[in-house]
């Protein structure tokens, strides 16, 4: 029996999706994971990201409980996921009771392993200084995943009341021009984010997610037993 409670795939608008993740961050009593798509398309902003609202946009604008920069979401080119860890879900022996890196590591490595199983060769981990870009897929942080130089999965996190929410977005292909052009105008910078297709990959999202869940489950069990995560890109 899995230690990760998996919620059904949900196709819904951004407001409902973020309300659900916000509720999980407040209430989850077990490790909970879910995959979802945004319909209609939406632009999500980091919790404190500033943006002047303009009426008549071709997409919703919603705010995530997690940090980071703006992401365009839509079922034709992207899907999202959330994993919530209640306090102590990954063992209790972390210094000061806090380990902001561990949930990130677990989710990022689970995705890296799943991508590998599906033939997607990821670039070696990279981390650039935090860029003040307004676009999430224009930045490179330690736990983001890249293939052939393209950011293919972005990961952000929020901590509240002892729980941790890890949010992420898998970019399958470049969003349609009618969305990116409006995003460029709104955010005042050129679009960046071509996704898996530009790296030469078409990946079945549900199949990838199932592999991620298997890795997540194994990782949670390992950490609870006092084990350490293995970075397959570095430890192979």
């Amino acid at each position: 029996m899995s230690v990760v409670r998996v919620l059904p795939f949900l196709r819904a608008g951004g407001g409902a999706q973020m309300a659900l993740d916000d509720g999980l961050l407040d209430e989850a009593e077990a490790v909970v994971a879910r995959r979802y798509t945004w319909a209609p398309p939406a632009l999500s902003l980091g919790k404190f990201q500033k943006l002047e609202r303009i009426p008549g946009l071709p997409f919703e604008v919603v705010r995530r409980p997690t940090g980071g920069r703006a992401v365009l979401h839509g079922e034709a080119f992207e899907w999202s996921f959330a994993v919530v860890f209640p306090q102590g879900a990954l063992g209790e022996d972390h210094r000061g009771g806090v380990d902001t890196a561990l949930p990130y590591d677990l989710v990022s490595r689970s995705f890296a392993a799943a991508f590998g199983e599906m033939g997607v060769v990821l670039d070696a981990g990279r981390e650039t200084p935090y860029q003040r870009s307004a676009l999430c897929f224009a930045t490179a942080l330690r736990h983001d995943l890249f293939a052939r130089g393209e950011k293919v999965a972005a990961i952000a996190q929020a901590r509240r009341g002892g729980r941790v929410l890890v949010h992420g977005s898998v970019l399958e292909r470049r969003p349609p021009d009618e969305l990116t052009q409006v995003a460029e105008t709104l955010l005042d910078e050129p679009w960046q984010g071509e996704g898996l297709a530009a790296a030469g990959h078409i990946v079945d999202g549900e199949m990838l997610w199932r592999r991620v869940l298997a890795r997540l489950d194994a990782g949670v069990r390992l950490l609870r037993e006092g084990g350490r995560l293995r970075d397959e890109r570095r430890d192979a």
């Binding site: 919790k47 940090g67 902001t100 935090y130 996190q157 929020a158 901590r159 009341g161």
Partner: peptide, 26 residues
């Protein structure tokens, strides 16, 4: 994200949030 002068805080409760490159944290 910090509160303003004049507001009250209570011991053991949250009064603001910090966003880092890793997380938004209370």
């Amino acid at each position: 994200d910090l509160p303003s002068a004049g507001e009250s805080v209570s011991a053991g409760t949250t009064y603001g949030e910090l966003e880092s490159v890793k997380a938004v944290s209370e």
